[in-house]
Design a protein around this nucleic acid. Structure first.
Lengths: 339, 339
DNA sequence: CAGGTGGGCGAAATCGTATGCCTGCATCGT
DNA sequence: ACGATGCAGGCATACGATTTCGCCCACCTG
């Protein structure tokens, strides 16, 4: 920038004013402006965001902290996040919170060089990292939480109506005639509790009780879903339908069913939750509950950007926005086999 | 930091020296060091990376530019990238290059506020964005290219041996007795050409010619694979086996086969390429060629970090590292049905 | 006892940009 | 003709850290 100033025979301040483009209290002659712009172009000038940030301006970075990358659901969410963020002129910095075992309290700085970012978006349940959450709370960056699970609602939050989603899936199974409906909850500890409870409540409501052993739990992975179904089918009274808390788990269930020679949907109906990209292309195509991911993420980014621009708003009590999921019927559900 | 200096009754320079921890030319009395450290802790001091970066130090940020997020393969690669980067003490900032149509030449700054990053890792073929590549070439940041496809080898590159991988898959099919082997190439324009050519060469080599119409092309998506298989099975002489250039496409093929009532592997064998996470859990489990993603990414990150630390090395002619893929036989391949 | 030596620390420059304040000059009004 | 006004732009400083110099003092040595 100094070079430009020298080459264009103006002061560095003028160059700054011209290049920032922003309306300034100081007027600039059009002729000078042109000269500066031209010189800048010739010299291939690129602004240094660091210096900008130093002066307190924004860095146009959004920090995304995601609990588990390998989860296809979050992979899709991140894509949406990046796209949305870029549409707002922001880049995304990824922070990884080790999914399991992170007992060594990881601090904010471990995860993200925070002061860098204008806002932080949390993807998934961060319960297990209280130190991290505390750091976040004490810092000035605005935070928006997505699918926070059981984390306390201390930040503005965007979530889906898990209860309604599970109920829609179960309702569908019941309307097909199923009664022996099992459920597989994906869990990093504590995750998806709302979905699990929705299942338990629904079963009690509809059938008076939850069939013992029908509420399975598994890691939130393909292999987890696989193993869970094997346990369920091993029972003396295997279910005729399985609801999964997650499409990822449901895909694992589908795979296990095939391995076990249990055809879906003839002998077993499966419904997932999330409608991740692959759900429409499984064998057979998965009936699931669609979570409007792009909308949810889009809303969250908009919030984050707003909070970043107007720190004053951060004072207000954290908002909570709930999106409604919708049942998508595909080919993995059918009436139970007669027998 | 000034506050700490005041509170600990030392100068700000001393605080910097103590906190940076780095071996400095200036010795510090242990007692002072302790006092400073304690004060810093009490004040909850967090370094400002911006200021650090301003002085020319590193920002510990690696820029990852990926062509297509929604591709499960890249999603996995990004996860690996983040994990590897964090292991080296780097964070990852994501840049998104619109997969299609990006005719409006997007500049480096559009994609990434580059000066921020110590290095850039390119994931996938960037051919279509010459302006972007040019910017990269003219900038000082070291660049490492991963799976560059047909992009010119202007940067240090890490790739897999596509020819060997395809050959391994085809060899497997042939050894099972298949002759009518089709191929589906996933392509964002120009992508996976090496794999396609490997198929063509193999077929010519082994059978004298490529059956006309057997070399299909499709977008690199689940739906693309689905559509491609439908076209193939519509032919008067449908194949008994399909090799896909990508697991994503292969999963689409599996889905289409099921929809068409063509059972895999009895009536159709399918082999993929990449061994993405889901490949082991499809219905049926996918025989594929494993790409050692973590190793590849790990190597790339190591390279990037090295180049970031020692800019001198960037002068040397760009290196090329090729990893060998390995065939993984699962349940989607079998001898062709007799008839 | 004087000069040398080196340990411990502070002052100040620096990185690139943004901005508040000030100044020089020309035009305008009376 | 002289002060008031307004336009254009320069000067200086701040942001938060790192880093180069150099200062001071205590101790060692001859």
């Amino acid at each position: 920038m100094r070079d430009i100033a020298a080459a264009a025979a103006v002061s560095q301040s003028t160059v700054s004013r011209v290049l920032s483009g922003a309306p300034t209290a100081v007027p600039i002659a059009p002729e000078t402006r042109q000269r500066v712009l031209r010189t800048a172009r010739e010299l291939g000038y690129r602004p240094n965001p660091l210096a900008r940030g130093l002066r307190g301006a924004s860095t146009n970075l959004i920090g995304a902290v995601v609990r588990d990358f390998s989860d296809l659901f979050f992979a899709g969410a991140i894509e949406a996040l990046v796209v949305e963020s870029m549409a707002h002129g922001y880049n995304v910095v990824l922070g990884h919170v080790p999914g399991r075992a992170g007992d060594e309290a990881l601090s904010l700085t471990t995860v993200l060089e925070t002061r860098h970012t204008d806002a932080v978006v949390l993807l998934g349940d961060m319960q297990q990292h209280p130190q991290f959450l505390a750091d976040l709370r004490n810092s000035i960056v605005p935070v928006v939480a997505l699918w926070p699970g059981t984390s306390p609602r201390e930040f503005p939050t965007v979530d889906a109506d898990d209860r309604a989603g599970i109920r829609a899936g179960l309702e569908h199974l019941v309307s097909l005639g199923h009664k022996r409906i099992a459920y597989v909850n994906a869990e990093l500890p504590n995750e998806y509790r709302a979905r699990e409870e929705a299942y338990l409540d629904f079963m009690r409501d509809r059938f008076g009780a939850v069939p013992p052993g029908y509420a399975e739990r598994s890691p939130s992975t393909l292999a987890g879903g696989d193993a869970a179904l094997r346990r369920l089918m091993d029972r003396p009274d295997p279910p005729t339908a399985v609801a999964a808390s997650t499409d990822v788990v449901a895909v694992g269930v589908l795979h296990a069913a095939h391995s076990l020679g249990v055809t879906v949907p003839d002998r077993l109906s499966v419904v997932g939750f999330d409608d991740i990209a692959i759900a429409a292309h499984t064998v057979p195509a998965l009936t699931t509950v669609r979570m409007p991911i792009s909308e949810i993420v889009g809303y969250a980014v908009t919030q984050a950007v707003r909070l970043a621009r107007e720190p004053a708003d951060a004072q207000r009590p954290p908002a909570l926005e709930i999106f409604q999921p919708a049942l998508i019927v595909r080919d993995s559900t059918a009436p139970p086999a007669l027998r």
